[in-house]
């Protein structure tokens, strides 16, 4: 049996006194899309950030395609060397709610810089590749614009292109459309749909229940730092026996989810 793309095992996370994640275990199989939903403050971002080692789990472990992330396996939990961490993390692409493009570089520069500095590609090779990637998200025409000259939706698509250019096998999204005007969410969700249909392994924190229901292979529901469900959309939405989930869905119900009901 092959290793799952992501294997989260008994992960807990504390910020000082606050327990944010409580003994979370979940697997994401290669090529599948898991959507993380749950009320504000339930720990969705923290869990996702742990999967990219932007936060360190207080206990438990995370494996990416069978390899430990951040800490070495074995009886003593030791930090990986920066080079080892970069190697394992190179399979992961991360997309943030706030885009986090670098404002002093054009869209093309944002996508190309890691190709040059991390992959050691020549400038022209890197830019060719970056241009192809921008083309894929429909932004070839905007390649020489700076982030401040792009709409939110365009910026987020550049951010997706930037992550994809490095050939990740896993893409993590933290509320990728929450900072966008409603009319701009569609263009970003379409890029993500396309990506999912090409077989990318994805974990998506989202409040877009419709997207979760239609694109997600699995829905993970977090509440108070606990993973209450990680199941198919049908199982989660069609029969929300769990009162917390029912309550949550009542607040967020939109067309996509109600269709499944």
């Amino acid at each position: 049996m092959t290793d799952p793309a992501i294997n989260v095992s008994h992960v807990s996370k504390q910020f000082g006194e606050t327990q944010v994640l409580r003994d979370i275990s979940m697997q994401v199989e290669a090529g599948k899309v898991s959507c993380l939903i749950g009320p504000s403050g339930s720990g969705k971002s923290t869990l996702l950030r742990c999967m990219a080692f932007l936060e360190q789990a207080t206990s438990g472990s995370i494996h990416i395609e069978g390899e430990p992330l951040g800490f070495t396996d074995g009886p003593q939990r030791r930090r990986q060397s920066p080079a080892e961490l970069r190697r394992v993390r190179s399979r992961i692409g991360m997309v943030f709610q706030q885009f986090n493009l670098w404002p002093h570089m054009t869209a093309l520069g944002n996508v190309a810089i890691a190709l040059r500095k991390v992959r050691g590609m020549s400038r022209s090779d890197a830019e060719d590749r970056a241009m192809a990637q921008l083309d894929k998200v429909g932004l070839k025409e905007r390649a020489h614009h700076y982030p401040a000259q792009l709409s939110g939706g365009q910026q987020q698509r550049v951010a997706i292109a930037r992550a994809l250019a490095l050939d990740p096998t896993i893409m993590l999204f933290d509320e990728p459309t929450s900072a966008l005007d409603p009319e701009l969410t569609g263009e970003v969700l379409n890029v993500m749909r396309q990506l999912a249909s090409e077989g990318m392994t994805m974990v998506v924190v989202t409040h877009e229940i419709g997207f979760a229901a239609s694109v997600g292979n699995r829905i993970a529901f977090l509440d108070g730092g606990r993973l209450l469900f990680h199941d198919t959309p049908q199982a989660v939405f069609a029969a929300p026996r769990e009162p917390r989930l029912e309550q949550f869905l009542d607040t967020y119900l939109d067309r996509g989810a109600s269709m499944l009901k």
């Binding site: 990219a52 932007l54 190179s90 992961i92 943030f96 991390v118």
Partner: peptide, 14 residues
């Protein structure tokens, strides 16, 4: 912004 540094970490920059 911290996020700009995090994005760079995720992109593999040293």
């Amino acid at each position: 912004p911290v996020g700009h540094v995090e994005a760079a970490e995720c992109a593999g920059l040293s």
